[in-house]
Structure formats: C-alpha cells, structure tokens
Design a protein around this nucleic acid. Structure first.
Length: 563
RNA sequence: GCUGGGUUCGUAUAACGGUUAGUACUCAAGAUUCUCAAUCUUGCAAUAGGAGUUCGAUUCUCCUACCCAGUACCA
C-alpha cells in the first residue's frame, strides 16, 4: 500500500505538470531478488490505472533497448552495470571517494566490538584512517588488492564538518552536519553493482528526473545524495525532493506491515501475493475493492485537497493534487474508511456494471446465468415472470440485474449482493435459529452484516442438512402464530404480483390489518419462511422477485420443517 | 545511544497569529419501517506537557515527553 501510494503521488504530480512517469527497476541487490516481484509491481500499478509513460511497454514488460518512446533504456539497473563503475571511478579520481578493502566480516566484528563497550562503530572520517583503504594503503598495495581480491568496495569520502543545506518540497529547509554521516558504500566489487545511492543519483541524472517523491525512510540519506550531486557537478540539474511520511498500523505503534493486515482482516497489498514459502497475502483487488476506490482512499492517506470533497476520480486527483498539501505526520490506515470508500464507489456504478461483476461470483456458487430467456430454452429452464428458475438454478441476466438494483445499497462489495440475499437465488433449506430467537419476538439484535461476513449466509453453503433445533421450532411455530404466515402467503398467491413490490407490500399490510393479525409477527414469520433469516429485504420486494410458485413452495417447506 | 523527522476528537484531516477549533469515518440516540439495512436529524469526542514571543497563539521559538525513520557491501 505504501509503495502504491508513493507511485500514485509521483504519477499525479507528473501528470499534473505535463511530465512523464517513468518506471525504473532498482534491483541492485542480487541477494534479494524475488521471482515475480517486477511483474507484480507493473500489474498492480496497471490495476490502479497508473500507466507509465516510459520504462514499461504495452505488453507490461520492462523495456531493455532504447527507442523513441523509451530513450533511457534499459530500465533495470541490473542491466545498466556498465554505466555505474565509470562514475564511481570518476569520483575517486576527483577525490570524493576511495577504495575500501575491509571485509564485511571485519566490519561487523568491529561493530559488535564497539557495541559491547557501549559504543557505535561508524565508518567515517575518524575511523577511516585506521582501516584498510586506498587512503591509508600505499598505491602499490592498493593496486595489488584491487587485482587480487574480489570483495572490495568504493566508499564515498564524506567531508568533515560541513553543513549540508537541503530543501524538501514537503518538509521545508533541513540542515545536517556531515560529521554525523558515514562513508557509504557506493559500489560493490563482489557483484559488480552499485548500491542504491550511486545508482539512483546516476540514473536520475541520466534519465532527467526532475522530482523525487519517495518514502521518509530516505530522508536520512538525503545529505549523502546532495553531496553526490555536488561531487558529480550536477547541482544545477539536481531533482527536487519530497519525502512522504510512512503508513502506520491501525492500532498500536509502528509502520504498517504485512502481519497487521492478516491480524486485522484487511489487505496490505494491492493484489494477492504468494511468496516462495507459499504464504498468501490477500489483495485489495481480490477482496473486491474497485481500483478507483483504492486509489481514492490511498490518495487521501496523507493528502487532502483542503475542500470537503472526498470522492475524487484519477482525473480530478491529477487536477487537485499538490505536494504543499501533503501531511508531514505518518498516517494511520483505517480499514473502516476504506470500506466506506468502496461503498461510495459501488453506489456510483450502474446496475449493468455491477451485474457484470456479480455474474461470475454467482457462477462460482453454482448458479447458471444466461443472457436471454431463449438461451435457456435448451437447458430446459422454466422461468418465473422475472426470469428465475429456482429448481434448476438458472437465471437470466435481467433477473440478476433486478437483484443488483435492489440489494446494492446494502452492499460494500459486489460479492456482498450474493451474501446479503442468497435467498433471491436459492430456496432456503435451513432456517436460522439465531434469527428466530432474535428479531422482534425476542429482544436481541442480529449481527450487523456490514461489519462482519454475515454468518447467516453460511446457512446456504454449509449447513443445508443441519438439524433445526426442535425447541426453537416450537417457540417459533406455536407461540408466534406463524400459521398466519401461511394465510398471508395464500393471500399473496391469490393476488396480482405484477403490480410492483411497493403495491404488493401495501396490499398485504391492508389484508393483515383487516384481519387484525399482528403485523410484525406475521411479516417476520413470512420472511423467515421465505429467506431462512429473520431480517432482510422487504416482503414485497422478495415476493415480487421470486413469484407465486416459489412463494408457495417455500412457505410449505418451512411449515413442514418448523412445524 | 546518536542523527533527522513528526505530534489537532478513537481514525483521517481542516483552520497557513484572531473561528462557538470545521468535516468525514466509527460510535450513540431519534425519525422512518414488517425486520435488517439504507436514508434523514441530533449527539459524544481533540490542539501531548511546560516555558517564551505577542494585544492575542493549534499556528512562531525553546525545553520535556512520546512516536517514526536511519544508523548494512538492503532498498
């Protein structure tokens, strides 16, 4: 999420200023190569609608050879090896860097030693004179080691007592004394690759990068980067910098990590990711978020337009974004608000768009959706007036669309439409004892389906044959006069159901009142019979969709089952 | 430890020296309804602490506390 947000801000900034958004793969650590990571990044950005102008071709592949559209290729630093060494050597020739021959083991031993005596070992101007490098060794010795050993490095020679004056687009002016900095490794002989610091500065220069918008973890390296630009003599074309605060975990302390998502039940990855060990991290895409909602909520994590508008399309974001309005403090991610954003976007979608997404979900639950009634003829479907065959589980797309129109205002994700009202597709075979005990006749409230996956939905998937608790049935069927539900149902069967759900409900209510039946009880018993649950859609709406035949069968089945 | 950055309702944020400190999410209550949602209305809730500058500080300065990052031959 943090990475996508950083990319998004870069993209918005670039597009707003008529610039290009370039993808460069900074893979200079051969030990940390992760199979598939590069493709994942490109796919994730693509899903978000962040389309690079340069660096990635139309097929989503990182460009390796220069062309008019991709003049700075290759865009993988591992394929730019040849470039960096020259620049590192130039730095040495100019006295800004030196060869260091201390092995990684020697250095970590020194660090451990210093730590044991309560101190910190730093490779800097006070220690470099006691270490093995081209500053302390003779020229011949240096030359010999360069040829005979393969694990030397090139380090930046940080000057003494120099105040580096920096400007950050978000944080303003910052000053740091070089005495607090160390001699960073710029180039490693072991894998013939530069470190981030060198590769980044060289490539940003070569690729004519004008703005660097990156995470706050880079702020401590900024003075080094300033010094490098100065050493190269590139100060005039140095990019401007902006350091973004980090995303924090929803509770407690620290920055957002993969584990938080697992623990709190929300994704921290844009797309599902499976690592080498087979560990699965869920993704926003797979969880049912709209990319527009994801982008919108990410944009607002650490930025705001200063107005009260909260819903922004990518186009609007490009217009409104500004680094001046990026917040300096770390932003804590709020999963509730994330869901709210998705709900808002779901409501903005047309019924057709939502239906397109819902159909595969329904098919995944074993339902058959056909585009037209005629298509189903060969399958032998017998549709009700709305286009549903409950026995064979075949439904027209138009029927699905009606369900979408009816249920979407209660849903956060498209898949919720099924979870909220499976009974609009499948006859309930089991009845929710919890629902019977809840509702009006006993004083407990059912769980809010918004907050949790509705446990009642499981009734349809898992427990079709689970026995209904006899004492609950007793309570329901005998004490609450639900036989009136049967009478109400037979009234409906004799009525015209093509008059619309509101008219149906109205007629039914009049009938109940005329007979002086208890309204709430009759209605709720009817709902339980039709849906298997004690709460949900309006009776008129349900009846209008499922039709007389299904209505009669469901009430009859409920009476048998619960009676 | 050191260096740098940060700190406004529970959360995201607004107010860039003068406001009854606003908005959204969450939560609570009410209206509505056959239930549950949705919707509408109302409500709860914050300037980390302390000095200073100023007629006046959320806003500027300093100190303290706390949080974050860096301190790798990682990015």
């Amino acid at each position: 999420m943090g990475g996508v947000r950083t990319a998004l801000y870069n993209y918005l900034y670039a597009k707003q200023h008529g610039g290009d958004f370039i993808i460069r793969i900074e893979d200079t650590d051969s030990n940390r190569f992760v199979e598939g990571a590069e493709q994942y990044i490109i796919e994730a950005l693509n899903w978000c609608g962040i389309i690079p102008d340069e660096g990635v071709d139309a097929n989503g592949k990182v460009v390796e050879t220069p062309s008019a559209k991709h003049p700075h290729a290759p865009y993988r630093q591992s394929q730019r090896r040849a470039i960096y060494r020259k620049y590192a050597e130039d730095l040495i020739a100019a006295g800004y860097a030196y060869y260091a021959f201390d092995s990684a083991e020697e250095l970590s031993a020194k660090r451990a030693e210093a730590e044991a005596s309560g101190q910190t070992f730093i490779y800097n101007q006070t220690t470099r004179q006691q270490l093995r490098n081209s500053l302390t060794l003779s020229e011949e010795e240096t030359k010999r080691l360069l040829e005979e050993t393969t694990d030397w490095t090139i380090r930046f020679k940080m000057p003494e007592n120099h105040i580096v004056k920096m400007d950050d687009l978000i944080r303003g002016h910052i000053e740091v004394n070089t005495d607090t900095l160390d001699d960073k490794v710029l180039w490693k002989r072991a894998d013939e690759l530069p470190t981030y610091h060198l590769a980044n500065i060289v490539d940003d220069h070569l690729m004519e990068i004008s703005e660097v918008i990156r995470g706050e973890e880079w702020l401590p390296s900024l003075p080094l980067h300033y010094m490098l630009y100065k050493a190269f003599g590139w100060e005039d074309t140095m990019p401007r910098f902006a350091h973004l605060s980090l995303l924090l975990k929803p509770d407690g302390k620290g920055k957002l990590s993969k584990r938080d998502g697992d623990k709190m039940g929300f994704p921290v990855f844009p797309l599902k990711w499976v690592n080498k060990e087979g560990e699965v991290s869920r993704g926003y895409r797979e969880d049912g978020y709209f990319p527009e909602a994801f982008v919108n909520l990410l944009a607002f994590l650490g930025w705001n337009p200063g107005t009260e508008q909260e819903i922004f399309s990518m186009e609007e974001l490009i217009g409104a974004f500004s680094l001046e309005r990026v917040v300096k403090a770390g932003a804590r991610f709020n999963p509730e608000k994330a869901r709210w954003y998705n709900r808002e976007y779901l409501r903005m979608k047309t019924d057709d768009e939502l239906t397109d997404i819902l159909v595969p979900v329904l098919e995944g639950h074993g339902l058959n959706i056909v585009d037209c009634p005629k298509c189903a003829l060969t399958a032998g479907a017998e549709f009700n007036s709305k286009g549903a065959d409950f026995e064979k589980h075949i439904y027209t797309r138009d029927y699905v669309k009606e369900v979408v129109a009816l249920v979407k205002e209660r849903a956060t994700f498209v898949a919720d439409i099924w979870t909220i009202a499976p009974y609009l597709f499948i006859s309930p075979k089991e009845f929710d004892a919890f629902g019977i005990k809840a509702g009006t006749w006993l004083d407990t409230k059912p769980a809010d389906p918004r907050r949790q996956p509705d446990p009642r939905a499981k009734v349809y998937d898992d427990t079709l044959t689970a026995p209904f608790l006899a004492k609950d049935a007793d309570k329901f069927w005998k004490d609450e006069n639900p036989s009136l539900a049967k009478d109400a149902a037979s009234f409906l069967c004799q009525s015209d159901l093509s008059i619309g759900s509101e008219a149906i409900a109205e007629a039914l209510e009049e009938h109940i009142k005329a007979n002086e039946w208890p309204m709430g009880k009759v209605m709720n018993c009817l709902r339980l019979s039709l849906t298997g649950a004690a709460s949900g859609l309006g009776i008129g709406e349900i009846v209008s969709l499922i039709g007389k035949k299904e209505l009669g069968e469901r009430v009859e089945f409920a009476a048998q089952r619960l009676g």
